[in-house]
């Protein structure tokens, strides 16, 4: 089997789906964050793979760089939010934060 774009995309899809499921199942706020990281990472794999196999070239890599940087920033903010959440609820269980329910 020739290793081509499709294979990389499948790896990216696995990462993405794992991230989504992680977000959907974890009650721990940190776990949810990890899911987010996985989703972003799956997207990154796609970008870089497209950069390699299509005329996208360096642009794909640069976009993935932006994604990494923004993910880091997001992680920092999300962690701060998680800490605040923890301060307010004395737990990190996201199921407890349902004040905004309709």
């Amino acid at each position: 089997m020739q290793i081509g774009l499709s294979e990389y995309l499948i790896v990216g899809a696995v990462l993405f789906v794992a991230g989504v499921v992680c977000m959907a199942t974890k009650r721990n706020g940190i776990g949810v964050l990890m899911g987010v990281e996985l989703v972003l990472n799956g997207a990154n794999v796609n970008f870089v793979a497209f950069a390699r196999y299509t005329p996208l070239g360096l642009d794909g890599q640069i976009i993935s760089l932006f994604v990494i940087v923004l993910a880091a920033a997001e992680a920092a903010v999300a962690l701060a939010i998680a800490l605040n959440f923890y301060n307010n609820h004395m737990t990190i269980d996201v199921d407890r934060g349902d004040q905004l329910k309709g």
Partner: peptide, 17 residues
């Protein structure tokens, strides 16, 4: 960034909470 930074950040979060 990810392995060296973000994950460490996450682990800090884990430890703090």
């Amino acid at each position: 960034i990810y392995v060296g930074g973000t994950v460490v950040l996450l682990i800090f979060g884990v430890m703090l909470t």
